[in-house]
Design a binder for these strands. Sequence first.
DNA 1: TCCATTAATCGTATATTTGCGATATAATAT
DNA 2: ATATTATATCGCAAATATACGATTAATGGA
Lengths: 111, 111
Amino acid sequence: MAVHKKEEFTQKEQELAEFAKAMAHPARIAILKVLATRNECICGEIVDVLPLAQSTVSQHLKELKNAGLIDGTVDGPRSCYCINWKAFEKFFAEFSGLFTSLKIKNEKACC
Amino acid sequence: MAVHKKEEFTQKEQELAEFAKAMAHPARIAILKVLATRNECICGEIVDVLPLAQSTVSQHLKELKNAGLIDGTVDGPRSCYCINWKAFEKFFAEFSGLFTSLKIKNEKACC
DNA sequence: TCCATTAATCGTATATTTGCGATATAATAT
DNA sequence: ATATTATATCGCAAATATACGATTAATGGA
């Protein structure tokens, strides 16, 4: 069937999955890289760097913003984006928290 | 159009995106959680825990394995999976490497 | 005011993902 | 040999994602 059952998982599981999904495309990784190396507001420069149409880049930016990975403000006729470091810290904390406990106990598994 | 342009990005960008995509579903996060809390080979126990059909869980396991996040070996009539810790370490290293440099320089951005 | 520039959104086509039931496979038990 | 159990795979339907061109909106300049 085509019923998506995402709601049946825990809040944390959904959050982590949402975060991962936002990064699940090389274009969005590339955008994050550009924003990270500049750490300043950039707008259409991203379009120049990526091998994609302006509308497509805009769509990717929207997804990153919706997921909370970046912040964006309108600055005159252009838009300004930057990394939301807090969101990344939260992701790292939650994500590594999922695993570290066990990893310490026993590195070795059966396969 | 419907032409996917993933090939036009760097190898690293594609790798990171692939890794993220493998985690971009709450069911797969849940599977990783189960494997991490046990750190031992588990097979159909995952099916009992998840609100999904056996065939669907098997498909998610396959995706995780293809992405290299988990290892799996056939053990008689059942299959045995476990976390591939090395893969996670590599991901964390690559991913945080993308950002840390700049983060140190300047926490504050324009938006 | 009118035009140029920048970026968001709409509409659309195609590709991929998600999910299930049914079936196939493979090893063990009877 | 046959049945049972555990998993993987196939085939399909529906939902989502990806990408683009065209259009719209909003600002700044001539």
